[in-house]
Design a protein around this nucleic acid. Sequence first.
DNA 1: CTGAAAGCGCTAACAA
DNA 2: TTGTTAGCGCTTTCAG
Lengths: 363, 363
Amino acid sequence: MADVAERAGVSTSTVSRTLRGLSTVSPEVRARVEKAAREIDFAVSRQAASLVTGRTGTVAVMVPTLNSWFTGSALSSLAPLLRAAGLQLNVYEIPDLTERTAFFETLPARRNADALLVFSFDLTEEETARLDDLGMPVIYVSQHVDGRPSVYVDDVAGALHGTRHLLNLGHRRIAFVPTEGASGFTFSSNERLLGYQQALTEAGVPLDDDLVVSTRTGSKRAAAEALGTLLSLREPPTAIFAEQDEVAVALVWNLRRTRIAVPEQISVLGFDDQPLADWFDLSTVAQSPSRMGRLAGELALKLIDDAGGAGEAGGSGGTGGTGDAGGSGGDAERHIVLPTHVIPRGTTAPAPEPADQAPGESA
Amino acid sequence: MADVAERAGVSTSTVSRTLRGLSTVSPEVRARVEKAAREIDFAVSRQAASLVTGRTGTVAVMVPTLNSWFTGSALSSLAPLLRAAGLQLNVYEIPDLTERTAFFETLPARRNADALLVFSFDLTEEETARLDDLGMPVIYVSQHVDGRPSVYVDDVAGALHGTRHLLNLGHRRIAFVPTEGASGFTFSSNERLLGYQQALTEAGVPLDDDLVVSTRTGSKRAAAEALGTLLSLREPPTAIFAEQDEVAVALVWNLRRTRIAVPEQISVLGFDDQPLADWFDLSTVAQSPSRMGRLAGELALKLIDDAGGAGEAGGSGGTGGTGDAGGSGGDAERHIVLPTHVIPRGTTAPAPEPADQAPGESA
DNA sequence: CTGAAAGCGCTAACAA
DNA sequence: TTGTTAGCGCTTTCAG
């Protein structure tokens, strides 16, 4: 920067002011400085700048994996937004429990970011508490934590509507197949199960634990096992609601291989609406991670702004504890709930006529 | 850090030494310092540290999108590697030409990373030159640039082998369907086309431009158009080699919808071997982005180390120009070529018997 | 509108 | 083995 200053015949202060776009610089000086800066390819060191401003110009995100439709879409819409705001994107991928423990021990984001976006982890209270005094806004994405800013999809409602769709098609024996998470990626499982149960209850269909069989994701074999369990029940389901599209597709794949017609004999419904669903003409409950990413980014920007402007009001406790004290905006602005949509495609159809009625029952 | 020092009753230098794990600290003092640090949840500010060390502790990656199997897999294997080395991962997503121009104008990574990984962009010479004097090692991933460190897959050989597979099955009319890139994501297209042509030539099959029809990715409609062009040729192909699995799958999808049997009537071969290929039982040429990511990361680590140890030898010109002067390791270590593998699955089969022989020809 | 000076939090000589 | 000192490159008062 000193080089630029010398080259332009001004002080470093002026260079700094120019490069930050402050209006208190005369046009001619500004031009000279900009020219000089361009000539020597000068770029401000964020490191040095942040040392004095206290802001890092970086947003950190913590994701369970970078290799999934969900995080891919979300980050893909988040990144341009941050770039437009002049912020860098720092990614912490926490694929397993080891990394997770290490992360929460070190908290490497501390002092190295202006905000943290936590994706899809089912955190313990201690972990949440740990994040509370990280000294920066923490936004929970695809999950909600009481009193903390969150952006998430209404999983309960999604599963409720999905199940209702199956009920409306005449299905009564409806199975639900949740996914066993690898490293705490299971947050929405519970919620979706809840919605499923809620729909059955409101329709007067009794819950049956035998109809809830969990599986692993990304494995045809595991899906086959779950399917086997369901198909060998005394009274097998006529419809299966999978918690994730990938599992739903695996189910369809296995069913068809067994020459069980989908949807004629068994309906299958997914959740997510990722591209795979379209390829397989899978009926599903859609959510929009890209929208989630964008909204989370906007919320982060806002919170960073608040923190900067308000002069760190509220003490080190941050957003935890007392609820929505301090800061602008009520709870509604800090708790963004996204809708879901049932997308009927080719894997759901009216329930087949009950062929084998129990003997003795009247027609 | 001053707080920790006071709490432990030592100087900040000692705290610094302790926290960096230098061995010149007595065990008892070390224990005291670590305890104090833990008590107040102290974490070193990389910003301040890098100001004096000159290293940022960050690796930047430039990707066209975060929302693809390729980048997802690659980054997913890169990230843990960097974390293990104590480095942060900074992502620049450059989805379109506007962002691209902006990126090369600002070069925001300058002074804000210790190395840059450039993914899958088909860069101009000017752009490459611009990166040359970025002042940090630049590693090209999934592409190769003369004289610069690169990690890439042998696309020519991959396409060559893929095409040979089709030739060996008896196909002579083999189409190639490249993908029009959105923002310079087309680097491997040319190489793959080359391999395809090479295989035909060595088999004595004349090249036919009509058999090369490009399409867009991720669109069933676009694939249908390309397919239409091929199927309305005077002499349509009996096999189609798509440059990407996604396109291959779209072709299969459209063919089957038209009741053209795959592979009985037309064989389809993809390139990538992403999960989608397995779902569709697609024959394909496999590459491993995760391996690419890992190797690129290791190379980056090595180059960062070299740069640090060698004391910036070689001047500001960096790696460009004179070739592999300076630094340890020859060109082989800086030019990593990964193999491909033909994975025969259910969409390739022997060419059908020519049903409609030209009249007058003998049997 | 511009410049001089102080200092952000840390590390790297150099002394002790 | 530890402490003292200087300074990394920038922003920010405070004067002018």
